[in-house]
């Protein structure tokens, strides 16, 4: 469903993502981990068509994002870390706008809007202007809008920041339900326990390079450590961060 084919991205001369090659099949929940500045958000922005890869290509449901962007984006829903909401629209109007944008038939859109309102418990505030929403209310509305048109691919960047435990629980259930429905979920997060609990596979990106990808057991095996995801993650990123051995004046490398 999602194919990143030897994708690299440079900002000026500085590489942000290096030769990222990854395929995520339909119905999988893929967790994307990495320290700050590792290239997670750049990768996500490329997957949504906001940025173009400097090298390589990205395909969503077989559609190349550069050449068939509209077809690809029609299948995506993207929930960024700081989502945008029209401040002067009510939650219901936001949902209606999204339904119209995806050409949903009137009756179907009305039914789906009501389903989303019920699922995310938006009823108490859905007819208020979003400018008066709290962070949690905003996040629930954004998720309702993202899932309204039943996307084939859901890309989520740091969804749990600032949410209360009940909302986090709801979010986890929703993401699981989405994969059961057949949607592919690409979840970028710093929350390792959520990644461990929900994901089918985990990718670890560090300094723009994918340094590990697989199930938790595969990552443990690759890191040669039988611990929690946190321990595995720290070991993998630490190893990558170790400074290169100092060069001797002759140009040979001194032993570490």
């Amino acid at each position: 469903m999602i194919e990143l084919i030897h994708v690299s991205k440079q900002y000026g001369n500085k590489p942000a993502v290096k030769d990222l090659h990854l395929t995520i099949p339909k119905g999988e929940l893929f967790a994307f981990l990495g320290p700050n500045g590792a290239g997670k958000t750049t990768t996500i922005k490329m997957m949504c068509g906001l940025l173009f890869p400097t090298f390589g290509a990205i395909r969503i449901a077989g559609f190349d994002l550069e050449t068939h962007g509209e077809d690809a984006r029609r299948r995506i829903s993207y929930v960024p870390d700081t989502p945008f909401l029209y401040e002067k629209l009510t939650g219901r109007e936001v949902l209606q706008f999204i339904a119209d944008m995806y050409h949903m038939p009137k009756e179907h859109s009305a039914r789906r809007i009501q389903q989303m309102i019920d699922l995310f418990t938006l009823q108490p505030f859905v007819d208020d202007l979003t400018q008066n929403y709290s962070h949690g209310m905003r996040q629930r509305t954004v998720f309702a809008a993202a899932l309204l048109h039943e996307p084939e691919v859901l890309i989520v960047d740091e969804p749990t920041v600032g949410l209360d435990p009940r909302s986090i629980r709801l979010l986890k259930d929703v993401l699981r339900a989405e994969t059961k429905r057949g949607a592919t979920v690409f979840l970028s997060t710093h929350s390792l326990d959520i990644a461990q609990e929900l994901s089918d596979r985990i990718g670890v990106i560090h300094q723009g390079r994918l340094i590990g990808c697989g199930t938790l057991d595969e990552l443990r095996h690759s890191a040669e450590l039988h611990g929690t995801l946190e321990e595995v993650f720290l070991k993998m990123t630490e190893e990558e961060q170790k400074p290169a051995p100092a060069a001797t004046p002759e140009g040979a490398f001194a032993p570490a």
Binding site: Q10, Y11, G12, L51, F52, G69
Partner: peptide, 14 residues
């Protein structure tokens, strides 16, 4: 437009 958006976002240093 989208090409320009991409260049604006990634034209300079990271």
């Amino acid at each position: 437009y989208r090409r320009g958006y991409n260049r604006m976002a990634s034209g300079g240093a990271l």
